[in-house]
Simulated assay, not measured.
Amino acid sequence: MLLRHAKSDWADAGTPDAERPLSRDGRHACTLVAEHFTDVGLAPDLILCSSALRTRQTVQRIAPALPPNVPVLTEDRLYLAEPEELLSRLRDVDDGVPSVLLVGHNPGIHTLAVALLPPADRVKIPTFPTAALAVLDLGTRRWAELGPACTRFASFVTPKHLRHAS
């Protein structure tokens, strides 16, 4: 599962990028995403989260919809990470962990999501707005084998889609 952080607040231009909090719209989007997790039964076994405040707040806001005690690893290396770095981190996941939620930033998260899909499915994720969630299926592959075009498209939702669906 690849989740881009929810919309952040740009009200204070002096706030360092890594410390920008979620905006009101971002907090609302998290509620929609949390409801989606519950409605479709998504339950990650591990959460990998960028160290930015907006990603940490996104995880905090969707936490009520997640399994209790799911480990959350907040890592500096995921902050504004390039797709190669995100892929490298996912390849390091232990094979005993069936599912992972990676919470990060664009453009890395979008580029990674598209690259992991077969070419015919890449059009299913044309953009990756804030609080968008892509669910990709590894099938029987091990995490270390994760690479280009090796996953199966499961779903892709955005807050706009979720608002219209409710």
Rank of each mutant, 00 (worst) to 15 (best):
156 F>S: 00
4 R>S: 04
64 P>K: 04
166 S>L: 14
78 L>S: 12
34 A>P: 06
151 T>F: 00
133 L>A: 04
135 V>A: 01
122 R>Q: 15
7 K>F: 02
62 I>C: 01
88 S>A: 14
4 R>W: 04
141 R>H: 07
38 T>P: 03
120 A>T: 13
130 T>S: 14
154 A>N: 05
92 D>A: 13
66 L>V: 12
59 V>I: 04
20 R>D: 05
129 P>F: 02
150 C>I: 01
65 A>G: 13
69 N>K: 08
7 K>C: 03
154 A>F: 01
15 T>H: 08
101 L>A: 13
145 E>M: 09
83 P>T: 05
23 S>C: 05
39 D>I: 03
19 E>H: 00
72 V>K: 10
108 G>W: 09
86 L>W: 04
10 W>T: 06
134 A>R: 00
157 V>R: 11
154 A>G: 03
5 H>L: 05
118 P>C: 14
79 Y>M: 12
108 G>H: 09
110 H>W: 09
39 D>Y: 03
88 S>Y: 11
29 A>K: 08
93 V>Q: 08
76 D>R: 14
108 G>K: 02
45 D>N: 15
164 H>G: 12
91 R>I: 06
82 E>S: 12
55 T>S: 12
142 R>A: 13
116 L>E: 02
86 L>E: 03
166 S>N: 14
2 L>D: 01
124 K>G: 00
78 L>M: 14
69 N>T: 03
142 R>Y: 11
112 L>G: 01
39 D>P: 01
143 W>L: 06
161 H>W: 15
87 L>R: 07
30 C>F: 13
162 L>W: 06
